[in-house]
Amino acid sequence: MSDLEWARFSNDLFNLALFAYLISMVGYFAYMAFRREPIWVASKAVLLAGLLAHAASIASRGVAAHRVPWGNMWEYSSLLAFLVVLAYVAVIEGAFKVRSLGGVALAFSVLTMGIALLGDFYVGPAPLVPALNSYWIKVHVVAAIIGSSLFALGGGVLTCLYLAKDFKERREERAVVPPPIMGGAIDLNDPPDFATGADEPVGLTEQTGRRGLLPPSAVLDRMAYRTIAFAFPIWTFAVIAGAIWAQEAWGRYWGWDPKETWSFITWVIYAGYLHARATSGWKGRRAAVVALVGFVSLLITYYAVNLFIVGLHSYKGF
């Protein structure tokens, strides 16, 4: 096949994957509402088919362009959406054994892919401009996309669900005295070493949580924390790899370019979140708000900087 045919093949598979995600998303929402096993089985099957098509789409894009398939905004968006779905399947369904959140995770990916389509990010496969032609791009961009997809899952999707569920639980349980917050105050006489674990759930536990569309808030809270704690070192690494790349390409590892600045801001906010979790009175809802602010900052890092703020990282098309 010629490069052009590979590119067309990649686009067809992209559309197929988007279509599959849409159907699967509707299915997952139906499962969340009705809790019928066959709905979940069918949705999961469509989801996996979509994931497979998406993987093939990304791979054939790489074949068409003769390079790694993450060189511009279109390709980042596709890969980001793919990794969010993959992370959902592996982490939330695989590790946490929670099945009811597929619709929300898929909605994020569908949105990302939809914005890529409607925002006219598409550019034909082409070789990279010299500055992007470094092996650090492979390392930096992969880490950045994995980090963003996990932040999107933890700081965006799961945190929103936690806040929604927490709001509902508090309204329903207003009569019940809430359990005391097991906060470990951080001060010098009581260093965080001895503080209660930052990853311990706040609020109702699995046993006491009532059945509903969503898992209990305590479970959502813990999943959000774990996902963010998983993403943070990856993001840190992505920023460091980006600095090394910048040193090689532009002669300075840090120049307060808008992308650098915003990835640093995102990093600071999530660092603040992790500290907040270890501080008394800052768990649960208040920490969740910090995580949401971090998510907004992530979106600015990803979209606004590329599209609206001109800097060295404005890679939308060429």
Partner: peptide, 18 residues
């Protein structure tokens, strides 16, 4: 708390700078 506030101020200054 102070260190965290200073870190957030650093982030805020960066927002202005961007």
């Amino acid at each position: 708390r102070t260190a965290l506030i200073l870190l957030l101020m650093l982030a805020g200054a960066s927002v202005i700078g961007s």
